[in-house]
Structure formats: structure tokens, C-alpha cells
Design a protein around this nucleic acid. Structure first.
Length: 379
DNA sequence: ATTGAAGTACACG
DNA sequence: CTAACGCGTGTACTTCAAT
């Protein structure tokens, strides 16, 4: 497929926008959806401590734009979010509410026509290359215009039916569509939140548009890789394009090749309709680090039970059981064992507990998190 | 040489 | 005390052993 037109959709501040929709009094006020900031703080403790201080060990799932003005963002420790804006409204994550909304949104997206890839609850790609309205057009210019029209209709429909604001990016590939979407997001300064909404980046424009952008806009270049590059004086895509293929390979291994092209606006990743499940897991962070075998074992069994239920539902069996353990201080390790595929609780418990016990023996630090993950095989 | 297992690191939403 | 840091999933790298 030589000339593609890909659309990327992303709901603005998804969880927070849903909460605002459900309770319009929240609009215009800083709102943080995520962990409970005071979790683990007992009544006695707060009386003794005077001014309440955040204790929760969770993170921010989504902050609305008012909260973002205080520097709060997704993934930030909830305790820090509280420090930045103690007056913000803090709400727990209402997963099933968001799930239902997501399903209705994805149904709307599917109706556009074209291969659709759902990336998360609130994000999707759609390949418009073979869309009825677009494929019949001969003129390239008109195709891009038509794609924009489709995106406009999509945004309107989602706003009318689901009462949620969203942003679309349109580009010659998934990467550029996603970057376009990011560029079209409402800015903090824009109180109306409706400034752009859609950004079209044609194949002709892609390379030049990327040049001045921060290197971390490129998918696959995250915090760590970005920091390494920046320590070498490479901050923008333009800087990175000066690197030869040898050093790209050196820094990024097998991904260096793809990166060379991505820096130039080229990305061949197809829109993938269905993806097969490769692993199913559950993990739990304790309110306080612990080595109490009672607590450890009961939580561990609960996690295993949940994993098994999902395994069962998916009609899968566990082939590799991995136990993860995060210690006080955040040091994290895994131990795994490949076994004869099974969905049997007793067998998996025996294997998993053997792995867990090895942790208890090898490390004397209190434990912050335990988890269990099953690499799956078809039944 | 290739493959599989175990363990680590990083990325993304 | 200047760090704080969830959860679920996927990919790639490294090392070691067996084929």
C-alpha cells in the first residue's frame, strides 16, 4: 500500500472528561482521576500529624486541563499531584463507566469504514485508504480534504452522542497521524478547548514538519532513550537526522533501522485489526511494604485466581509463569518457569509459590509489589 | 548456528 | 526526607544451555 491515509482519534482527557460530563459542577475546576491521595492514612495518624499529607502510593490516571495548569499529568505520583494542587477534586477510576463509553465511541469509529485498530479505551487508528468516499476520488488533494471532512463529522458525532471532546490527526501513516493528533490537542492557554481539533499532515509535509520537534515525538523514543540522545546534544528530530546508520544501530539496535525512516516521516506499521493475547497478568502494590507471609500469600492467591479466571475466559492455558517482585526502594525482579501448558489452579499455584519463595529467600528487603503473569498458549 | 529459557530494560496508554 | 512512582501488555537485548 503505497499511498495511505490514516486517521488517529484520541479523546481529550478521557477519564476526566467523562467525570465532567457526569457531574458538570466539576467543569472549570482542577480535577484529577486516579488513586486515592490519602490512602493508608488512618484517622489517628491524621489527627496527630496536623496538616494532612498525602500517603497514597498510586498515580494520576488523567488530569483535566485545569489541573494540568498546576503541572499535574498522567502517570505522576498522586502524592505529588496533591502537593501541586491540594484543592483539586480527586476522583477514583470508574473503569466500567469508561469502558461503556469507550465501546459506544468505538462503534461510532467503526462506522466510518476502513480497517480499525483500537489502541486503548480512548484511542484508535483507522485506515481510510480504502474508504468508499476516499477511494473513489482521483485527486490526492481532494482525498486529504475528504479525510478531514470525515474527521470533522466524527468529532461532531462523538460530541453529540457521547458528549466528549476529541482530537484527530490525519497522516500518511500511523506515526504521522498520531503526531498530528498531538499537535492539534487543545493548548493550556486556550480556555475554549476547541482551537484546532484536527491536524492534517500530508505525505509531502511530513518530513519538514518533524524537523524542529523534540526527539521524543518519535514513537519508540521514550524518556530513557530521549535522555541518552539529549546527553549527546541531540534534542530535535533535525539533530537526530545527522546521525549515521551506524550510530543509530549502536544506540537503538534493531530499532535503529526503523528509526532512520521514522525521523524522515516514513513509517510502514500497518493498521492491525486484531492482536493475539500473549500474556495475562495481575499485580498488586501494598499500602505498606511487607514481608508478612500471611499477607503475601493471601494477596498472591487472589492475583492467581483472577489471572486464571481470565485465562479460562480467553480459552487459554499458561505456558510460562512469571512472578514479579518489587522491593522497598523500587528494585524490581522477575522469576519465571516454563511448564507444560495448564489452566489448573493447584499446579500453577505450586509453581508460582515456588518462584515467590525464591524471592523471599534471596532478598531480605520488605516487599512493595507482587505480581503474577502467565504467558499463554491456545488450549 | 539456531532455538528456548530466564532475566532485564524500556515503551506506551 | 528532596523523592514521590499503578497496572497491563508488548518488544528487544543478553546470557546461558541444549540441539
Amino acid at each position: 500500500m503505497l499511498h495511505r491515509i490514516i486517521l488517529h482519534l484520541d479523546i481529550d482527557a478521557f477519564f476526566a472528561s467523562i467525570e465532567e460530563r457526569e457531574n458538570p459542577r466539576f467543569k472549570g475546576k482542577p480535577l484529577v482521576v486516579g488513586a486515592e491521595p490519602m490512602e493508608g492514612r488512618g484517622r489517628a495518624a491524621s489527627l496527630l500529624a496536623g496538616e494532612p499529607r498525602p500517603m497514597g502510593r498510586g498515580v494520576v490516571s488523567t488530569a483535566n486541563y485545569e489541573a494540568r495548569k498546576y503541572g499535574i499529568h498522567s502517570g505522576m505520583p498522586i502524592s505529588k499531584a496533591y502537593q501541586l494542587c491540594p484543592k483539586a477534586i480527586f476522583l477514583p477510576v470508574s473503569g466500567s463507566l469508561y469502558q461503556k463509553s469507550s465501546e459506544r465511541i468505538m462503534d461510532i469509529v467503526r462506522h466510518i469504514g476502513g480497517e480499525m485498530e483500537q489502541v486503548s479505551l480512548d484511542e484508535a487508528y483507522i485506515d481510510l485508504s480504502n474508504n468508499r468516499a476516499i477511494a473513489q476520488l482521483l485527486d490526492e488533494e481532494l482525498k486529504w480534504e475528504k479525510a478531514k471532512e470525515i474527521a470533522e463529522n466524527l468529532r461532531n458525532e462523538i460530541f453529540e452522542k457521547e458528549k466528549l471532546p476529541c482530537t484527530c490527526g490525519i497522516g500518511p501513516n500511523k506515526m504521522m497521524a498520531k503526531i498530528g493528533c498531538e499537535l492539534a490537542k487543545p493548548s493550556l492557554a486556550d480556555e475554549s478547548r476547541r482551537a484546532n481539533g484536527i491536524k492534517v499532515i500530508t505525505d509531502k509535509e511530513a518530513e519538514a514538519l518533524l524537523e524542529p520537534l523534540d526527539i521524543e515525538v518519535i514513537p519508540g523514543v521514550g524518556k530513557k532513550s530521549g535522555a541518552i540522545l539529549k546527553s549527546q546534544g541531540i534534542h530535535t528530530v533535525r539533530d537526530a537526522k545527522k546521525m549515521d546508520t551506524i550510530s543509530l544501530k549502536h544506540f537503538f539496535g534493531i530499532r535503529g533501522e526503523a528509526l532512520y525512516y521514522r525521523l524522515r516521516g516514513i513509517d510502514d506499521e500497518p493498521v492491525v485489526t486484531e492482536r493475539e493475547v500473549k500474556s495475562i497478568g495481575k499485580e498488586h502494590t501494598f499500602q505498606e511494604d511487607t514481608r508478612d507471609p500471611e499477607i503475601l500469600l493471601s494477596v498472591f492467591e487472589g492475583l492467581l485466581k483472577d489471572v486464571l479466571a481470565e485465562l479460562e475466559k480467553a480459552g487459554m492455558e499458561c505456558k510460562t509463569v512469571t512472578v514479579v517482585c518489587r522491593l522497598k526502594g523500587f528494585e524490581t525482579h522477575t522469576k519465571s518457569k516454563t511448564i507444560e501448558p495448564t489452566g489448573n489452579f493447584a499446579i500453577l499455584r505450586r509453581e508460582a509459590i515456588k518462584l515467590l519463595l525464591r524471592f523471599i529467600v534471596s532478598y531480605s528487603l520488605p516487599i512493595r509489589l507482587i505480581g503474577i503473569r502467565c504467558g499463554v498458549s491456545d488450549k
